[in-house]
């Protein structure tokens, strides 16, 4: 898995590339922690380039969303499709998480 960080003004997009599994999901958690320390308040996690997720990856997203809710941060998941969408649907988290079709849609939602 590779994480690419992009910025649109004060909105940060974390692109997840490859497979997010039990061996590497911690990298996303670490990045999120560092961003929290820098007082970043607006997050988009994009899955357009992510082909696989397992329960550790899902657990990481649960943890991130939980913190985002506690701290009243803006937090969206975008381009969730394929295996990632199927796994979130199986766990019934597809309606629990703030899923938005595209990065552009999430940016519009945050700005409004």
């Amino acid at each position: 898995m590779e994480l690419k960080l992009k910025r649109h003004e004060d909105i940060y997009v974390i692109e997840v590339h490859g497979e997010m599994d039990l061996y590497n999901a911690g990298k996303l958690k670490e990045l999120f922690q560092k961003m929290l320390e820098k007082q970043i308040k607006k997050y988009i996690v994009d899955f357009q380039h992510c082909e696989y997720i397992d329960s550790t990856g899902v657990g990481t997203l649960i943890g991130m969303f939980s913190i985002a809710k506690q701290k009243q941060l803006q937090f969206f998941l975008t381009s969730v499709q394929g295996t990632v969408l199927k796994v979130l649907t199986l766990t019934k988290l597809h309606e629990y998480f703030p899923l938005v079709p595209t990065i552009e849609d999430a940016i519009k939602t945050i700005k409004n």
Binding site: V58, G59, I62, V87, L90, K92, L93
Partner: peptide
């Protein structure tokens, strides 16, 4: 309310345990 039940934890759970694998398994 669902937020309290998205991850099943035990005293042995650690950071790498998502606590959600069996939820998906039971559906799959």
């Amino acid at each position: 309310k669902m937020a309290e039940y998205v991850s099943y934890r035990t005293s042995r759970s650690d950071d790498l345990d998502g606590g959600n694998a069996l939820f998906a398994a039971l559906e799959y």
